[in-house]
Design a protein around this nucleic acid. Structure first.
Lengths: 105, 105
DNA sequence: TGAAAGTATGTCGCATTTGACATACAATAG
DNA sequence: CTATTGTATGTCAAATGCGACATACTTTCA
């Protein structure tokens, strides 16, 4: 619910997996944020592997560079929808997605 | 892009996994819709397993019965965001999610 | 050093998604 | 049959997410 909290959490240097109830976040909120951060990190990684700039990815998905930057930053203004769609644009499969979400897979 | 197409696709009896490019859907669009349908189906299943009504789930996630009905129906007006959040409300873990997305896991 | 390419951040108007409400339909029991 | 409980469908105002733009910061390489 509280956007400011999320902003704070996502700022500067939270290792993926460490976002937890240290502010008054419900487990679902934590899980949701963690999920977004995981996917965001993977997006950046994949984009770079494919030697694409944010501008190029933005064009591929008919969006803008600034949006891509926000997606990768895990900005609270970005939905899971857009995050997942951008991954799909990079050719990520459902199986790939599953592995991102639960590496133990 | 085309909402009507998606409506059609989601109507009556598409086995999960069978939504494909048989209308002019791009691979990403197909994948996105398939993903939503998979999660929607799982949501209904889990809700029932926990002996919850749509009204009860709606209260848990601070939404309304009609929204829950739409989520489970894979209504195009429902975002992945809301879908995933509703699953998290039911206590679904990242690992659970991964298994839903890619059963082979 | 400095120009160029890439990325980050803030804002805005428009579009989509939301919860809520009304109401219709479905299934079950009494 | 007919209440009751559960689900589906349509609509709407308000909230949220969106692409786009402007602009600042960062990195790279001559």
């Amino acid at each position: 619910m509280d956007k400011e909290k999320r902003q704070k959490l996502e700022e500067n240097g939270w290792a993926v997996g460490s976002v937890d109830e240290f502010l008054e976040l419900t487990p679902e909120e934590s899980a949701y944020i963690e999920l977004k951060l995981t996917l965001a990190t993977n997006l950046r990684q994949r984009r770079r592997e494919q030697h694409l700039t944010q501008v190029e990815l933005a064009n591929l998905m008919h969006s803008s560079q600034s949006r891509v930057a926000k997606i990768e930053a895990g900005d609270p203004s970005v939905s899971l929808d857009l995050l997942v769609r951008s991954l799909l644009t990079l050719g990520v499969t459902q199986s790939d997605l599953a592995h991102m979400i639960s590496p133990a897979v």
